[in-house]
Simulated assay, not measured.
Amino acid sequence: MIRHLVLFKLDEGVARDDPRVVEGVRAFRALGDRIEELRSWECDWNISERPNAYDFAINSAVDDADALKRYIEHPAHQAGVALWREFATWVVADYEI
């Protein structure tokens, strides 16, 4: 099994209630029910206010590298990524569990 973690940082001056952000969050929250490769799916706003904290996180799991590839290439995932590119940057970590 592979754990897939993503941490998002909103661009300077972009707020959580920005309509683009609201739509991006909606798109990502829906992925857990739309992509069969996902074995677990969590995403939400970070509650930490530390200066080095990211703003939003995804914590998910898939069976293997092929399932991760299918998830990444899934049209619903790609649509969500396209939204987030407009207002955020992110870092990714994938590791075996």
Rank of each mutant, 00 (worst) to 15 (best):
N59D: 15
D55H: 03
R16A: 07
E36F: 12
E37L: 07
N52I: 15
R29P: 11
E36N: 09
V22F: 03
F56D: 01
I35P: 05
K9D: 09
R16I: 02
L5P: 01
W41H: 02
E23D: 05
P19H: 02
S60F: 06
R39T: 13
R39V: 14
N52S: 15
A61Q: 11
A61V: 11
V21A: 00
W41L: 04
P51E: 13
D17E: 09
L31G: 05
N46T: 09
V14F: 01
R34S: 13
R16C: 06
S40E: 05
F8A: 00
N59K: 13
A15I: 08
A27K: 10
W45V: 01
D44I: 14
D11L: 04
S40F: 07
E23I: 04
V25C: 05
L7G: 09
D64E: 06
R16E: 07
W45D: 02
K9H: 10
S40D: 10
D55L: 02
W45N: 08
E37K: 03
L38Y: 05
I47E: 15
A65V: 14
S40A: 06
R16P: 07
G32V: 04
A30G: 10
I35F: 05
E36P: 10
V25R: 04
G13M: 00
I47R: 15
E42K: 15
